[in-house]
Design a binder for these strands. Sequence first.
DNA 1: TAAAGGCTCATACTAAAGTACCAAAGCGGT
DNA 2: ACCGCTTTGGTACTTTAGTATGAGCCTTTA
Lengths: 136, 136
Amino acid sequence: MKRTILVFGLLILGLLLLFQFSKYAIISGDLKSEFTIALIAVVFFFVGVYLNKKSLHKSTKVLKEIDHKKIEALDISKREYEVLIGISEGLSNKEIGDKLFVSESTVKTHVSNLLSKLNAKRRTQALQIAKDINII
Amino acid sequence: MKRTILVFGLLILGLLLLFQFSKYAIISGDLKSEFTIALIAVVFFFVGVYLNKKSLHKSTKVLKEIDHKKIEALDISKREYEVLIGISEGLSNKEIGDKLFVSESTVKTHVSNLLSKLNAKRRTQALQIAKDINII
DNA sequence: TAAAGGCTCATACTAAAGTACCAAAGCGGT
DNA sequence: ACCGCTTTGGTACTTTAGTATGAGCCTTTA
């Protein structure tokens, strides 16, 4: 919050300076008026872009990226992660097995390990947790 | 695509006119230079905001809103929808029952109806489908 | 008021999911 | 070559999930 106030303060100060400079430049005729107008236009264009992006970041959630570090931190192996993806696609253990060319038993082992690593009791809970920590 | 070209064409035309007008206004001294500068600033500020919003809509996925019409179209009742939310929270049938103050049997009935309405074989698949059609 | 649909709940099954253990093959690092 | 870890797979068992069916209650609507 303090940082926000600081940023806005500096922004307004900068704009005021630019404003005064422009007025002076135009009146004194040191610079071509076209140049000054273009400068103002460009600066405010980017200010608009910046503020809009800021506000979007604040109000709405931007698309999440997968947190690979978290996956490592939780000690989730490649195979286990592939199984997790299968679960998120709504597949049964049997179907995941077919997809990964392993037996249902193997998938069950992976799922069981996955659940304890994610601290979940059910596969649906695992999905919820996985989404929450951005690993899916 | 045609609409986009038209919009951009008009936008550029408008900005050029504004630009010429500003130059003329400042040189002829009809208007105060402060006013002209402020006008330019405001216009380009909003142009920046507008273009940024446009590009965000195009490139990245914007947060999805729940498609209530789809829910109705699929004939999903209030209670069934509440059960669906419970599933998405990773709860068991028993836990959903506790949350909604009904028995596990009731939840099972709702889940079963939900699955057939969503054309899913499992609750995880129901989640995947529900997310896909933006009802969750 | 009778029909219809939603909500509730139960019983009785079947089918998945999940746990616990064990075991063997394979691989990268020391 | 040995260690540790992943991956694989099996057996046996418990727990959830899901299906089918029937039934009672309530509210809305024809």
